[in-house]
Amino acid sequence: MYVEGTRDLMDVIRVHHKLPPKEKEKNLALIDERATTRYFPVYEKVLDDHGQDFLVGNQLTWADIQLIEAILMAEEKVSTVLDGFPLLQVFKARISNIPTIKKFLQPGSQRKPPPDEKLVATANRVFNRK
């Protein structure tokens, strides 16, 4: 259930680079609105109610990995998106400092940066999209 929720949020974020310029501002507002009113309040409450370091049980699960990726994706678009969520801020710091995750998040790692206009133009050209 937690993974599916983060996927829903990530879907809204993923389409951002594909949108025409006129739609991007609306999409940023939608990302901020959905993250701060629909998704992040739920995860904040789960962490508060559960009283553990992780979403499920007391060990790292796929749900935690999905949530940290959704948080990072949302912050790439709206830098202040976590401002009202102190438990998610602590969660992000804790998960980001797990040695293997910390290494993955370092510049030059396998984690891909968000697509920029040049990458989008290249992809559109390669796939014959307008």
Score class of each variant (00 low, 15 high):
residue 4 E to M: 12
residue 128 N to V: 13
residue 80 T to G: 02
residue 5 G to W: 07
residue 122 T to N: 09
residue 116 D to V: 03
residue 112 K to E: 14
residue 46 V to S: 04
residue 35 A to I: 10
residue 120 V to E: 07
residue 87 L to S: 04
residue 100 T to M: 07
residue 28 L to E: 08
residue 92 K to V: 01
residue 100 T to A: 11
residue 85 F to T: 00
residue 39 Y to C: 03
residue 43 Y to E: 08
residue 43 Y to S: 04
residue 129 R to Y: 10
residue 46 V to M: 09
residue 4 E to Q: 15
residue 1 M to Q: 07
residue 6 T to M: 11
residue 126 V to K: 12
residue 82 L to V: 01
residue 52 Q to F: 14
residue 77 K to Y: 11
residue 130 K to S: 12
residue 88 L to K: 00
residue 57 G to H: 02
residue 81 V to H: 02
residue 9 L to I: 09
residue 110 Q to M: 15
residue 101 I to Q: 02
residue 69 E to A: 15
residue 37 T to F: 04
residue 77 K to V: 01
residue 17 H to E: 10
residue 54 F to A: 10
residue 33 E to Y: 12
residue 24 K to L: 01
residue 93 A to H: 13
residue 109 S to Q: 07
residue 119 L to P: 08
residue 22 K to F: 11
residue 16 H to L: 08
residue 35 A to T: 06
residue 16 H to D: 06
residue 73 M to G: 07
residue 54 F to H: 11
residue 81 V to N: 02
residue 14 R to I: 00
residue 56 V to I: 15
residue 121 A to P: 04
residue 113 P to H: 10
residue 8 D to Y: 13
residue 108 G to F: 02
residue 48 D to K: 14
residue 124 N to W: 03
residue 21 P to Y: 13
residue 35 A to F: 05
residue 77 K to A: 11
residue 35 A to E: 05
residue 93 A to M: 07
residue 119 L to W: 12
residue 109 S to R: 03
residue 26 K to Y: 08
residue 15 V to K: 09
residue 49 D to G: 10
residue 117 E to K: 02
residue 21 P to A: 15
residue 54 F to N: 03
residue 74 A to V: 01
residue 20 P to G: 14
residue 108 G to W: 00
residue 98 I to T: 05
residue 126 V to P: 01
residue 74 A to F: 03
residue 31 I to Q: 05
residue 25 E to F: 03
residue 96 S to L: 04
residue 64 D to A: 04
residue 28 L to I: 08
residue 130 K to E: 11
residue 117 E to Q: 12
residue 52 Q to S: 14
residue 101 I to F: 06
residue 9 L to Y: 02
residue 118 K to R: 10
residue 24 K to W: 03
residue 96 S to Q: 09
residue 111 R to G: 11
residue 3 V to F: 06
residue 106 Q to G: 04
residue 55 L to F: 05
residue 15 V to Y: 02
residue 5 G to A: 14
residue 35 A to W: 02
residue 66 Q to G: 13
residue 71 I to W: 01
residue 54 F to E: 13
residue 59 Q to K: 15
residue 24 K to N: 07
residue 45 K to V: 01
residue 29 A to D: 15
residue 104 F to N: 12
residue 33 E to L: 11
residue 67 L to T: 13
residue 24 K to P: 01
residue 65 I to R: 06
residue 72 L to Q: 08
residue 19 L to R: 04
residue 6 T to N: 06
residue 98 I to W: 03
residue 30 L to K: 15
residue 28 L to Y: 12
residue 110 Q to H: 15
residue 105 L to M: 13
residue 48 D to M: 14
residue 83 D to S: 08
residue 2 Y to D: 12
residue 116 D to A: 03
residue 47 L to I: 02
residue 114 P to W: 14
residue 14 R to H: 08
residue 81 V to D: 05
residue 44 E to R: 00
residue 76 E to G: 12
residue 60 L to F: 10
residue 104 F to P: 06
residue 78 V to R: 09
residue 83 D to Q: 11
residue 54 F to P: 09
residue 62 W to E: 10
residue 94 R to C: 02
residue 46 V to K: 15
residue 119 L to R: 12
residue 21 P to F: 10
residue 100 T to E: 05
residue 43 Y to Q: 05
residue 22 K to N: 15
residue 63 A to C: 01
residue 26 K to A: 14
residue 8 D to N: 10
residue 71 I to R: 07
residue 8 D to C: 02
residue 32 D to L: 12
residue 26 K to N: 15
residue 52 Q to E: 15
residue 118 K to L: 07
residue 87 L to N: 13
residue 99 P to N: 02
residue 49 D to T: 14
residue 49 D to S: 11
residue 122 T to K: 13
residue 13 I to Y: 05
residue 130 K to M: 05
residue 35 A to R: 04
